[in-house]
Design a protein around this nucleic acid. Structure first.
Lengths: 205, 205
DNA sequence: CGTCGCTTTGACCAGATGGTCAAAAAGAAT
DNA sequence: ATTCTTTTTGACCATCTGGTCAAAGCGACG
């Protein structure tokens, strides 16, 4: 067995720069709309140099996507079945909203991928993702059984949290256009609105 | 003044076929990802033939977008300030959800455009759209003043309706993957869920 | 210093892409 | 049937795209 070559400092730096640049470009243009040249120049490299680190455009994209999926689902994994139901759900909403605020490019990357039919992560969606959501749904149903939250369709509850929070990243341009120039940061209001919404919907009785 | 040439039957048919094909392709691939050849063959025409009807790919896209924007906002315009507040809002939610079910391509087209920075409709967003939303927001605030619905941020209420309903068109693949093969039509459940959600949030007291 | 492996580059390629054009084919009108 | 306009097409073009390759540059280490 040949020892795998050690990863050099330059490799680490350039790979990271490439992935960051690719996130910029892919999230704004989608896979087809992005060009390797754009990514390369945004990363401060020549095209052949970029292709020295990744064998193809496709490889950069899937590397990004794979690395991101886990991060993206972490907030849902952090939901604690032993905690207070409403507080847990509100905390999940808040974490997702923070991700929209702090990582809008990642959100848009997923949005682009899924709108365009999720050709590269269909498997993950009906595997990892589905299992995780099913588990969460069971917890939510249990909370409803115990009368600790009002009963709602748990799968659609999860969908609604995703759509409401990601909207502020994916449709940021529209949100800002509608709110006007005066509003520099829509997130505080969004947070208050969503907390009110989920509290009223989920409070029993 | 030269009389404008009459529009022939063939022109009407082919223009319609092109726009329909373009909707298919653009909504799935975005502007950059779509090719004129794909649109042409999907419309049953050769590429030069297609370019006989529209001067450029860009022209097809903007024609589509312009034609669609009005249709897309009609449900919001139909909201009646004189009606019952909760019923009006629920009806708006329902109409938007029906549009996601019946016109998913249109929804995805807008989603693609906005995610990618809305380069071609930024003006419309901060003009027509913003004015319409502002008017609606005033109505909603008035209803809250009168105590006929609970007070919520009206702009974010509108955002939430958009995001929740369009999610079922734009992220259709994800919704179906998570719900599993057993579910053939997520819309009835979605409708029930959204009605519950908005009713609980907006019912006063 | 010299060597060896990692990194970078310019030149290049084949295929795709948006778009043009002259000419042929097909209708419409008489 | 003849003419005139509308429609369709094949051939073509410049540019861009993802990707290759051999050669040159560079850095760490003895």
């Amino acid at each position: 067995m040949a020892q795998p070559r050690p990863v050099t400092r330059i490799q680490r730096k350039n790979r990271a720069a490439i992935l960051d640049a690719a996130l910029d470009v892919f999230s704004l243009k989608g896979f087809d709309g992005a060009t390797v040249d754009q990514i390369a120049s945004s990363a401060g490299l020549s095209k052949p140099n970029l292709l020295y680190y990744f064998p193809s455009k496709e490889a950069i994209y899937t590397a990004l996507l794979g690395e991101l999926l886990d991060t993206w689902l972490d907030p849902l994994r952090a939901l604690d079945p032993g905690g207070d139901p409403l507080a847990e759900i509100l905390a999940y909403v808040q974490r997702k909203l923070e991700m929209s605020r702090d990582f809008p490019r990642e959100s848009r990357l997923f949005a682009n991928e899924i709108i365009q039919g999720a050709p590269r992560i269909a498997g993950e969606l009906s595997g990892t993702l589905r299992d995780l959501v099913d588990d969460t749904a069971k917890v939510i149903d249990l909370w409803a059984d115990e009368g600790r939250i009002a009963r709602v369709n748990p799968h659609h509850l999860v969908f609604s949290i995703w759509s409401l929070t990601q909207h502020y990243a994916d449709f940021d341009v529209q949100v800002r256009a509608v709110l006007g120039e005066g509003v520099t940061d829509p997130f505080p209001e969004a947070e208050a609105y969503l907390r009110t919404m989920f509290t009223r919907m989920l409070t029993p009785g």
